[in-house]
Computed example of a mutant assay.
Amino acid sequence: MEGAAYDFGIYLAQQRRRSVHTVRAYRAAAERFTSFLHEHWGAEIDQRALSRVQAVDLRAYLASRVNGSATRSSGLSNASAARELSAVRAFLDWANGVGSTPAFKGPRVKKGVPRPVAPSEAVALATEVAEESDEAWVAARDWAVLLLLYGAGLRIGEALALTGAALPLGDTLVVTGKRAKTRVVPLLAEVRAAIEDYAGRVPWPLDRDQPLFRGVRGGGLSAGVVRVKVQRARGRLGLSDRTTPHALRHSFATHLLGRGADLRALQELLGHASLSSTQVYTQVDAAHLMDVYRNAHPRA
């Protein structure tokens, strides 16, 4: 079965028209699964072997991924494990026929998990949303939009208000926020690459005065469309119902602050009018605030 994962990737790319990142992720999951079965069963894995996969095998595989191993101390989060199961199911359906995968309820994140979502879950969410579409350019668009929210901290309205004038992209992006205030945000290389990939696929010209992110009929992409897609994806991944497009912006702020970002700089990145808005938004704990105070205040 050495070539099965590769052939599966070709099928996803050519017949299902999945995006490059989805093909890469699903093919890697197929390789991991067949390698696991080889060790789990102690036998070569061929087409006939895949037809014998049972729920207990899927459970054992996910357990190995979630719990980690002697060489990998930290395992997958529940959201990432759910996506891994989705990829394996697609692989088995491809190999044995649709509906052939044994019934098995994957891991779910407990209800009430507080925001922000973990970085791995943010990426899993964006990937799941992108994978939903059969249109390669739509998948690239969805991936780019959600990566922009998480990687640059934009509001969904700010992202969808961008026009073709933002192209060609540089290291920063000028964003128009509330009250028509503009700010400059840095663009990570991964975010810039995602937007450029979308721009190269979209079937409409991206004129300077036209929306950058287009709907399927060529008009501007609606925020409602993004929210519905995120809602469906978080259900499949077992994420909290508080996992919304705006939660990705919240995660951007919280993760930066947790890694030592300055509150004033974060305020500028988020486009907040006052520092108190930044403090409330990121749910900064009192201990961290005291550390910032002691390090910054001249009389601390």
Rank of each mutant, 00 (worst) to 15 (best):
A4F: 12
I10L: 15
L12C: 09
Q14E: 15
R18E: 04
S19R: 12
V20I: 11
H21A: 11
T22M: 08
A25G: 00
A25N: 02
A29K: 00
F36R: 11
L37C: 10
E39V: 08
E39Q: 15
A43I: 07
R48H: 12
A55K: 12
A60C: 06
A60L: 11
L62D: 00
G68E: 09
S69F: 09
R72G: 00
S74E: 14
L76E: 02
N78Q: 13
S80K: 04
S80V: 07
S80M: 09
A81I: 03
E84W: 01
E84V: 01
E84G: 01
A90V: 02
W94D: 12
T101C: 15
V109C: 04
P114K: 14
V117R: 09
P119L: 03
A122Y: 04
V123Q: 13
L125D: 03
E132M: 13
D134K: 13
E135V: 14
V138F: 03
D142K: 10
L146C: 03
Y150M: 07
G151D: 05
I156A: 08
E158T: 12
E158M: 11
E158S: 09
A159G: 09
L160C: 05
A161L: 08
T163W: 05
T163A: 10
G164L: 12
L167N: 09
L169I: 07
T176C: 02
T176A: 01
G177Y: 01
A180F: 03
A180W: 03
A180C: 01
T182W: 02
V184W: 05
V191I: 02
A193D: 14
A193V: 03
A194Y: 05
D197W: 08
A199L: 08
R201K: 15
P203A: 10
D207M: 09
D209H: 13
F213E: 03
R214Q: 04
G215P: 00
R217I: 02
G219H: 06
L221T: 05
L221Y: 02
V225I: 14
R227Y: 07
V230R: 02
R232Q: 12
R234A: 08
R236F: 02
L237G: 08
G238E: 06
G238P: 01
G238F: 05
D241S: 15
R242F: 05
R242T: 13
L248T: 08
R249T: 11
R249Q: 06
H250S: 06
T254L: 06
T254Q: 13
H255K: 10
A261Q: 05
L263C: 05
A265G: 15
L266P: 04
L266G: 01
L270T: 04
A273H: 04
V284M: 14
A287Q: 15
D291F: 04
D291S: 12
V292R: 11
Y293P: 01
Y293F: 13
R299P: 01
A300W: 12
